[in-house]
Simulated assay, not measured.
Amino acid sequence: MKLIYVFDAYCGWSHGFSPTIREVISLHPEVDVEVVSGGLFTGSRRVPIREFGYVQGANAKIAELTGAEFGEAYDRLIADGSFVMDSQAAARGLAALRQAAPARAAELATALQHAFYVDGLSLSDPAIYRKVAERTALDADDVAAALEAPETRAAAEADFARAVELGVNAFPTLLAAAGRDITVLARGQATTDDVERRLAAFAATRSS
């Protein structure tokens, strides 16, 4: 069995889910985790944040329900409404980090979200990936080189295609997969207890 975590680095609900995904993984260190960037803000949705009038209201709801932190630096970044969330750039950055430490992909995904939502750093800025690499004890030069490689751009596009293949159109979505059997453990907000209960039920069906 493995877990498949489909998220978007620019998705506030994914940010709110960060503590849950970290806790679930810590409870199941033996389980492989595939992390997939979903591509929420691509194509025609790659526009100034002012076009999404619901963002600040949604963030308040996310903070209320999950305890997620939205930092002052983030508030300053988006204050004038001109910031553009580019999920392709963020997915490419995750792919570069993931290449350096595949087994830590979920940790790196949550680190990226902290960089944006708490530290107010643009995930379109290549320098951010050096910062995240240094914070997570990865080789920053290796990550910077990977970021520019054509294979990394291809990996980001492959993630988007993987999300479509899995039928995921809401983020975050956490799946459990065993062979051809796949079940949804979480979509949007969920607690660790919610996920654990669903995971146990899925495991029980596999053993019965």
Rank of each mutant, 00 (worst) to 15 (best):
K2Y: 10
Y5V: 07
V6N: 03
V6D: 07
D8W: 04
D8P: 02
D8I: 01
A9G: 04
Y10M: 02
C11S: 00
W13N: 01
S14P: 04
S14R: 02
G16R: 01
G16D: 03
F17N: 07
S18M: 06
P19F: 09
V24D: 10
S26H: 10
P29C: 14
E30T: 14
V33L: 09
V33G: 05
V36K: 03
L40C: 03
T42H: 03
T42L: 09
T42M: 08
S44M: 04
R46I: 09
P48L: 06
P48G: 08
G53W: 06
V55R: 01
G57P: 02
G57M: 02
A58T: 04
A63F: 04
L65S: 10
A68K: 01
E72M: 08
Y74P: 09
F83M: 13
V84H: 13
D86K: 09
S87F: 03
A89T: 11
A91S: 09
R98N: 03
R98Q: 07
R98H: 05
Q99A: 10
A101E: 06
A101Q: 01
A103L: 08
V118L: 00
G120V: 08
S122L: 13
L123W: 06
S124K: 12
P126F: 11
I128E: 14
Y129P: 13
A133H: 05
A133P: 02
T136F: 01
D141N: 15
E148D: 14
A149Y: 10
E151Y: 02
A156V: 03
A158G: 07
D159K: 01
A163H: 01
V164R: 14
L166A: 07
F171W: 01
F171N: 00
P172I: 05
L175S: 11
G179D: 12
G179F: 13
D181K: 15
T183M: 14
V184M: 11
A186P: 11
R187G: 13
G188E: 11
Q189G: 09
T192H: 10
V195N: 11
A201S: 15
F202V: 14
T205A: 10
